[in-house]
Design a binder for these strands. Structure first.
Length: 569
DNA sequence: GCCGTTTTCGGCCCGACTGTTTTCAGTCG
């Protein structure tokens, strides 16, 4: 429902922009779309008062939201649709082609969708239009070719590795004194569109030359004296900006926050008599620069504490920063153990001992082995659990002073909400993760009943990868999150934040809703081989996006404290 | 269309790059 409403407002804004509507109304509608999309609760659970409390939602918008929920559309949107030929909007999805040009093409050439645009380009009809030219035609042709290929966002782990190797190459040069990645990657989003890099050094032009000439660069769509865009061989777009050293902080601020966060911060600056840009914070009265070298200086001069990058989405962090009440987010260094991993006993690749040694090397003080010991992965004899217990005991004997291996299971939640292992086994292990692995497609009510029932089982400690989403291939399962979170609270069940880059589940908005219910979290890697154990930082990043603190994280507890939580007393 | 420690009316963020122009509009982030 929320998505449907958000999309209606997005479309309304797009269509009004094409038709040349009031630009402030357009901005207002876009904000509503963003706000609704970020909402963790379903709109249908909100009364009028809740609705009006949403930022950017007034009387007129509230009634439009109700209209969409009731009828699936709104009169204003239908009006806009009638005014703009279908297909024009899809044209503006093409990078480099905005509403003005789309409309121009429509009026001049009768082009009203991407297919017709393609034809017009091939016939070289664009270059004849006043205001366009040969180059524009070529650029749009290239954009169209790329558009037909892939336009997917890159998973965060892939983007991180590309970014880190680029940073390494740039750092290796004398030309570069400082370089960092920012943008959605720094904010820890699960997928990244473009990579944003920021550098400083004595000779900006030379840095640009270095950057556009890096071996992994396949093309250079734009290159100026302080800003360049390249396309890597993998098809990833990378932007690099170069600023002076005393601008690095304001530039980092500028390129790290989401657009919404930055607009908010700049509005606050204006109200206080300042102007904020990537070059610094300036007092309007005399153009005096008051901050710029560090992010803390910039936020500090505005009377704010500095929100950690993953919080900078304009989801309420600005208000907290103004009051100096930002939460202290969980950090990777706070994590003492990992509570979800697999070995050869099920679908993992290696032994308990090897997993323990790698975890130890990463500084973990405990590791739970949570194999699927039910029949759906492999068939097991009843004493498999004892065999594994023996192996774990031996590893603990060997490494016990450095790391403690716990024995757990990841048990499948059947369609009816029953667990796929007998109570005798569930009782005998240190911890139980209950997860759904099949039959995601039940209707929401059945799904909710299924999950609630599983959480009522007294042995269940953690709800594993709760929504079951698989980025790029499977949507989150539909169930009533508020009901499930309430049941988790009643039954002492902890929510997993799964670090697998294809899952990152729970996700940020759901985490924030879970926190409202007072739930605790376990940030786990769900490792199937030793290499997976270092994914923890991805899960921590998602936790930070959900504003999770250390006291809310059970695997930041020392072993004693953790054991106490696992006994559910 | 929303919103208020300068406002209930009059504002609403900022700058780089490109292409096509002779000073700027369009697009993007």
């Amino acid at each position: 429902m929320n998505d449907e409403v958000a999309q209606s407002f997005d479309e309304l804004a797009d269509l009004m922009q094409i038709a040349g509507g009031d630009r402030f109304k357009i901005v207002a509608y876009r904000r509503v779309g963003d706000e609704v999309r970020a909402l963790a609760r379903d709109l249908s659970t909100l009364d009028d008062e809740d609705l009006l409390a949403l930022r950017g939602v007034g009387r007129a918008t509230a009634s439009k939201i109700r209209e969409v929920m009731k009828t699936g559309t709104m009169a204003k949107l239908e009006e806009a649709r009638a005014a703009v030929p279908p297909g024009i909007r899809e044209m503006t999805a093409l990078p480099g082609l905005g509403p003005k040009t789309a409309l121009l093409l429509h009026h001049q050439l009768g082009v009203s969708n991407l297919a017709e645009l393609d034809k017009a380009i091939k016939e070289q009809r664009l270059r004849a239009i006043k205001g366009l030219g040969r180059k524009t035609e070529e650029n749009l042709a290239a954009a169209l070719r790329r558009f037909k290929g892939k336009q997917e966002r890159i998973p965060i782990d892939v983007a991180l590795s590309v970014a880190e190797s680029l940073l390494e190459e740039l750092r290796g040069s004398d030309l570069v004194s400082e370089v960092a990645y920012c943008g959605s990657l720094r904010r820890g989003k699960e997928t990244i569109g473009d990579l944003d890099l920021l550098a400083t050094g004595p000779d900006p032009a030379a840095i640009m030359g270095l950057f556009t000439g890096l071996p992994g660069v396949a093309g250079v769509p734009a290159s100026g004296s302080t800003k360049s865009t390249v396309r890597t061989r993998e098809g990833l777009q990378v932007d690099l900006r170069v600023v002076a050293p005393d601008e690095f902080g304001s530039a980092l601020q500028y390129f790290s926050g989401s657009k919404e966060h930055n607009v908010r911060i700049r509005e606050i600056a204006v109200k206080q008599g300042y102007k904020l840009s990537e070059y610094g914070l300036f007092r309007v009265s005399d153009n005096l620069k008051v901050a710029g070298a560090s992010e803390e200086d910039v936020y500090g001069a505005l009377g704010m504490t500095t929100p950690p990058a993953p919080m900078r989405e304009n989801r309420g962090e600005v208000e907290l920063a103004l009051k100096g009440e930002l939460p202290e987010l969980i950090q990777l260094a706070d994590i003492l153990g990992d509570l979800h991993s697999h070995t050869r006993y099920s679908d993992g690749s290696t032994t308990v001992r090897e997993m323990a040694m790698t975890a130890m090397g990463l500084g973990r003080r405990y590791l739970a082995i949570t194999d699927h010991l039910d029949a759906w992965v492999k068939s097991h004899s009843p004493d498999t659990i004892l065999l594994q217990a023996g192996e774990i005991a031996a590893v603990n004997e060997e490494f016990g002073d450095k790391i403690t291996v716990l024995q757990g299971v990841e048990v499948d939640i059947g369609p009816e909400g029953t667990l796929a292992l007998p109570d005798s086994i569930l009782d005998s292990v240190d911890l139980v993760i209950a997860s759904i692995h099949r039959r995601y497609g039940l209707d929401p009510e059945a799904m909710t009943r299924r999950v609630v029932k599983a959480m009522q089982h007294p042995s269940v400690n953690i709800f594993g990868h709760p929504t079951g989403r698989w980025l790029g291939s499977r949507e989150a399962a539909e169930f009533d999150l508020t009901e499930v979170f309430a049941a988790a609270k009643d039954n002492g069940v902890v929510m997993e934040i799964n670090s697998n880059p294809a899952r990152l589940d729970l996700k940020d908005d759901h985490i924030r809703l879970a926190r409202e219910f007072g739930l605790k979290f376990s940030i786990n890697t769900d490792s199937h081989n030793p290499g997976h154990l270092s994914r923890m930082r991805l899960g921590v990043g998602m936790a930070q996006r959900g504003w999770v603190t250390k006291p809310e994280t059970i695997n930041a507890l020392p072993l004693d404290g953790l054991r106490h939580v696992l006994t559910k007393e």
